[in-house]
Design a protein around this nucleic acid. Structure first.
Lengths: 123, 123
DNA sequence: CAGTATCCATCTGGATACTG
DNA sequence: CAGTATCCAGATGGATACTG
């Protein structure tokens, strides 16, 4: 999405939507819904995520103030992540969109089938 | 976002979020908020979009049943796009997220500034 | 355990030229 | 006017190896 003045939207909105739209952000936020979790715990919970991408994703979320990172000076090291109050409001809002997607997934699939089975050039 | 059984989400949700998260979809849907518009009209309204990406975006939206495309057999050709009922519900839902982004943009900016100006390794 | 560093394949999308 | 076709640069993210 691009945001110009005629859209009555700002560039910052583009930033936020890029974040929410990326491959792993919502999964991470979702997994933190009930409280804090450790790095490896998150990695196990999110199917298919690489160590690199989990690091990249939680760092971005931390930078944006959506997730708080707590390091314990133990051996072996322990790092906990949890949602900030702001992160919790994002989870709540994004969930509306996930609900929409879930509710209309079948309808969209049917539309795609119809589109893909249309005659090549009707007229 | 990746969606496995433990996430209680389906793969179809990933599809939908990929669509909403892409660069132009929400801009196009937003520009169709008040009714039908022509191809070139949309292109002018959406700052920075290329002809190719407008075509790609409206085709995908049409395929998903979110936008309806009407071709008039005139010379020069005229093609109108408008939101379907389904597309209108998506606009409404996505708008909540845009509201969130707008509301918290400043807060996120401040968090980023704090993060970027932290001492390198506090210990 | 919780990372970082590096390399690389794929995907996205921009620029440009052409057309019914 | 409303596309399509082609090419290509940059971003995204996966695999792997290494480390405090």
């Amino acid at each position: 999405m691009v945001l110009n003045s005629r859209d009555s939207l700002t560039c910052q909105v583009r930033d936020v939507l890029d974040r929410v739209g990326d491959k792993w952000t919502l999964s991470v936020i979702y997994e933190l819904r009930d409280g804090s979790r450790r790095f490896t715990d998150l990695k196990r919970a999110i199917d298919g995520i690489s160590q690199r991408m989990l690091t990249v994703t939680v760092r971005s979320l931390e930078r944006d103030g959506l997730v708080e990172r707590t390091v314990y000076a133990t051996v072996p090291p322990r790092v906990d992540y949890r949602l900030t109050a702001l992160g919790q409001t994002l989870l709540k809002t994004a969930w509306e969109l996930i609900d929409w997607a879930t509710l209309h997934a079948a309808e969209i699939d049917e539309a795609r089938d119809r589109y893909d089975h249309r005659p090549p050039t009707p007229v």
